[in-house]
Design a protein around this nucleic acid. Structure first.
Length: 648
DNA sequence: TTTAGGG
DNA sequence: CCCTAAA
C-alpha cells in the first residue's frame, strides 16, 4: 500500500469544532483506484493553527517512519513537525530533546494518526456512495482550546470507532431527548453530505464517523483535579493519585465509554450534567432512528452484513479496538504505571488481532471474531514488535498482555479473552507445568508491583486465578513459539486484580460457580463473598437500561445492558436501582452537589446520575408517594415533556 | 424463571 | 446481598 504522504494544509480559518471532514472532491483519479487515500501532513502552530508541512518536514517524517520500522533506530529530533503533531502539547513545541522515549512516542503518535486518518477515510469511502470518495482528508480545527486540540482530535478518532456501530433501532431511548436539550450535539448533528448506504439494499445502516460525538474529555474539562479524582474513583472504583488533568480526563472518558460495553452506555457527564451521548450521527438520517443496544446488533447483522455489502477491503470498521486497546490497568495504583499508561497506546497490529482470534475460545460469541475478521489488510502498521508478555487471569477473565516495546515505551496492550464456560479441565493443573513460572509467580509479581498494600493480604484472587484459568488451548497458543526471554512479566498484567475494574468484554467471569467466590453462610446457605462495588459505569449502564426498557424489566436489562457483567444478576440490578432510587430521593433536598459526602467508603453517586434516576422514577411513577411533590415536580414535568417530544 | 419486596 | 413469596 503506497500511502502518499502529501502536503496540504487547510486554510487558517478559525473553526470551532475539531473534526475531520472529507472534502467533496472528485474520485476518479487513477491513483485513487489503487489507493484512494491521500493524506496531508500538517502541523500545528503554536497558536493551534494547522499549517501545511514543508517538504522537509515531510521527508523527515517519512524517514522517521521508516526508521521506526527498521527497528527503533534513534534519529535526530524530527523537529518542529513532529513536535507539533505530538499530543504532548506544551512540552514539545519548543525544545528539541533527544530523549529517545519522547521521540518514539512522537513517532508512534504520528504513525497512529496517519493510520487513524486512513481508517477514517476508508470507512468513509466504503460507507458512502461512490461520489463520496475524496482526495484529501482535511483537518479542520476550531477548537478554542488550542492547547488541547490534538488531544481532542485524537480522542475523537479513538472513540468514534466503536460508536460507528449502527444497528436498527429497537427501542427509542427516553434519554435520547436529553441529548437534544443538552445542546452538546449542536451543529455537527447534520452533516451536509450524508453518506447513506445504498438506500435500498441495506438492512444495516452505515454511519459516517463524526467526531463531535466524543465529548468525554471536553465535558470533563471544567472539573477540578479533585473532582476528577472523584469521578475517577466513581468510574473505576479506586483512587488515583495522578495529578495530570489530561490524563484523568482521558481515563475517565475512556472508562465511561469503553469500560463497559462501549456504546451500551450512552451517558456522559458534561458540566456536571448527566447527558445522553449521541451514538449516531448525521450520516444516515435513518428516520430518526438511533442505535439500539449494540450488544444485540453485534451478534446479528452488523458486522457481517456490513462487510458483506461493501468492499471488504475497504471496510475496516475496527470495531471495539479500543476495548482491547484500552490500557485498563485500573487495578494498579502505582503511579509510575499509571503515568505510563497515560501514554498513547498503539492500535493492535494485524498480527495482534490474528493472534487474538486464536486465543479466542471456541464458544466465542463472535464478537472478537468479528473484530479479527474486520481488521484491516495492512492497514495496521506492522511496525510494532508486539510480544506476548503474559497472561493472567483475574476475576474470571483472562488478561493477555503484550509488551509493545516501541522504543522502550513499553506500551501494554491488554486484552481479554473468554474463559472457558464450563468447569475447568481436569488436567488443568498439569498445564501449569507448561509454564513453570506460572500464575503464582505472576500474582506475586503483580502484588509486588502494586505494593502489597494494594492487594488484600492473602488475596482471594489467588483462588480465583486458578479457578478462572484459561483452557489448555489458550496456554498452548499463547506461549508456543515464544522465546523464554520474551516471557516478560508485566506490572500491567495486574489489570483488574484490584478487584474493582469492570470487565472490558463479554466474558463469562462468574457466570458459573467456577469463578465466583462464595462463602458458606452460618445458616447453611452460600452467599457471595465479596461485594462487587458498583462502578459509575455500571450505574450509568443501569440507569440507561432502566430508561430504555423500564424499571422492572431487570432480566431484560441484565441481558441487554449487562451482558458483560456476569456477576450482576437481575436481582442485583433491581437492588441497585432500589438503592439509587432511595438515594436520589433522599439526598436531593439538602445537598445536590456531588462533592458533599466525605469519604463514606461507599462510592459516591454523582448528582447528575441521581437526578436522572429521579426523573426516570417519576416518569415511571415509581416515585414514593410521600415526596412526589415539591420543587422536583417542576423540573420533572419539563423533562417528561421533552421526552415526549423526543418520541414524536 | 422472573419480579417484588423484606431482611 | 440474600431469601422467598408470588406470578
Amino acid at each position: 500500500m503506497e500511502t502518499e504522504v502529501g502536503v496540504e494544509g487547510n486554510d487558517e480559518a478559525k473553526l470551532k469544532e475539531c473534526r475531520i471532514q472529507k472534502s467533496t472532491s472528485s474520485l476518479s483519479s487513477p491513483k485513487q483506484i489503487s489507493d484512494p487515500v491521500v493524506y496531508k501532513l500538517v502541523r500545528v502552530e503554536g497558536d493551534g493553527r494547522l499549517v501545511p508541512a514543508t517538504d522537509d518536514e515531510l521527508m523527515e517524517v517519512e524517514s522517521l517512519l521508516v526508521d521506526e520500522k527498521g527497528g527503533m533506530r534513534i534519529v535526530a529530533d524530527p523537529g518542529q513537525t513532529l513536535g507539533c503533531i505530538s499530543n504532548e502539547g506544551s512540552s514539545l513545541s519548543e525544545n528539541k530533546e533527544d530523549d529517545p522515549d519522547k521521540l518514539n512516542a512522537r513517532l508512534e503518535y504520528i504513525e497512529e494518526m496517519l493510520q487513524k486518518v486512513k481508517e477514517e477515510e476508508r470507512l468513509r469511502l466504503a460507507c458512502g456512495s461512490p461520489d463520496c470518495s475524496s482526495d484529501y482528508v482535511i483537518v479542520e480545527s476550531q477548537c478554542s482550546d488550542e492547547h488541547d486540540k490534538l488531544l481532542h482530535i485524537d480522542e475523537k478518532l479513538q472513540c468514534e470507532i466503536p460508536l460507528q456501530e449502527t444497528v436498527p433501532l429497537l427501542a427509542p431511548s427516553l434519554s435520547e431527548s436529553y441529548l437534544n436539550q443538552s445542546g452538546i450535539v449542536g451543529e455537527c448533528s447534520h452533516s451536509p453530505d450524508k453518506l447513506v448506504t445504498g438506500g435500498s439494499t441495506s438492512s444495516v445502516v452505515t454511519t459516517k464517523p463524526d467526531f463531535s460525538k466524543l465529548k468525554g474529555d471536553i465535558c470533563l474539562d471544567k472539573l477540578s483535579i479533585k473532582e476528577l479524582h472523584e469521578t475517577f474513583k466513581a468510574t473505576f472504583g479506586r483512587e488515583t493519585t495522578v495529578k495530570d488533568k489530561q490524563w484523568l480526563k482521558r481515563r475517565i472518558s475512556m472508562g465511561l465509554t469503553n469500560s463497559c460495553d462501549v456504546s451500551t452506555t450512552s451517558f456522559i457527564i458534561k458540566d456536571n450534567k448527566f447527558v445522553k451521548k449521541r451514538n449516531e450521527e448525521g450520516c444516515n438520517g435513518m428516520d430518526g432512528s438511533f442505535a439500539k443496544d449494540p450488544a444485540i446488533g453485534n451478534q446479528k447483522d452488523l458486522p457481517t452484513s456490513l462487510v458483506g455489502q461493501l468492499d471488504y477491503h475497504q471496510v475496516v470498521p475496527e470495531k471495539r479496538f479500543e476495548n482491547h486497546n484500552l490500557d485498563d490497568n485500573s487495578g494498579s495504583d502505582d503511579h509510575q504505571t499509571e503515568q505510563r499508561a497515560a501514554k498513547r497506546v498503539r492500535k493492535p497490529t494485524k498480527r495482534y488481532i490474528e493472534e487474538l482470534s486464536e486465543v479466542e475460545s471456541k464458544e466465542s460469541n463472535g464478537r472478537l471474531m468479528n473484530l479479527a475478521k474486520n481488521s484491516g489488510h495492512g492497514l495496521i502498521s506492522p511496525i510494532s514488535h508486539v510480544r506476548l508478555v503474559r497472561n493472567v487471569s483475574s476475576g474470571g477473565r483472562t488478561v493477555i498482555t503484550r509488551l509493545d516495546s516501541l522504543g522502550g515505551s513499553g506500551v501494554q496492550v491488554p486484552c481479554v479473552s473468554r474463559v472457558r464456560r464450563s468447569r475447568p479441565r481436569k488436567n488443568f493443573m498439569a498445564l501449569l507445568k507448561f509454564n513453570p513460572s506460572g500464575m503464582g509467580m505472576a500474582a506475586t509479581l503483580v502484588k509486588k508491583a502494586l505494593g502489597d498494600h494494594s492487594l488484600p493480604p492473602v488475596d482471594r484472587n489467588e483462588n480465583r486465578v486458578l479457578k478462572a484459568s484459561p483452557t489448555p488451548e489458550h496456554i498452548h497458543h499463547q506461549f508456543v513459539g515464544v522465546p523464554e526471554k520474551d516471557k516478560q512479566f508485566s506490572v500491567m498484567s495486574a489489570v483488574g486484580l484490584g478487584g474493582n475494574t469492570e470487565p472490558k468484554h463479554m466474558n463469562s467471569s462468574g457466570d458459573s460457580d467456577d469463578n465466583v467466590v462464595t462463602v458458606p453462610t452460618s445458616k447453611g446457605g452460600i452467599r457471595r463473598k465479596h461485594h462487587r462495588a458498583w462502578t459509575l459505569a455500571e450505574v450509568m449502564k443501569l440507569v440507561d437500561g432502566v430508561a430504555r426498557y423500564g424499571a422492572g424489566r431487570w432480566s431484560e436489562i441484565k441481558r441487554l445492558a449487562f451482558a458483560s457483567y456476569s456477576y450482576r444478576t437481575s436481582v442485583d440490578l433491581k437492588d441497585k436501582w432500589r438503592n439509587l432510587l432511595k438515594a436520589s430521593f433522599a439526598q436531593m433536598p439538602p445537598d445536590n452537589g456531588m462533592n458533599s459526602r466525605k469519604n463514606t467508603g461507599a462510592m459516591p453517586i454523582p448528582a447528575p446520575i441521581l437526578l436522572k434516576v429521579r426523573e426516570l422514577a417519576e416518569m415511571q411513577a415509581q416515585v414514593p408517594p410521600n415526596l412526589s411533590s415539591t420543587k422536583v415536580a417542576g423540573s420533572t414535568i419539563k423533562i417528561v415533556h421533552e421526552k415526549q417530544t423526543g418520541f414524536l
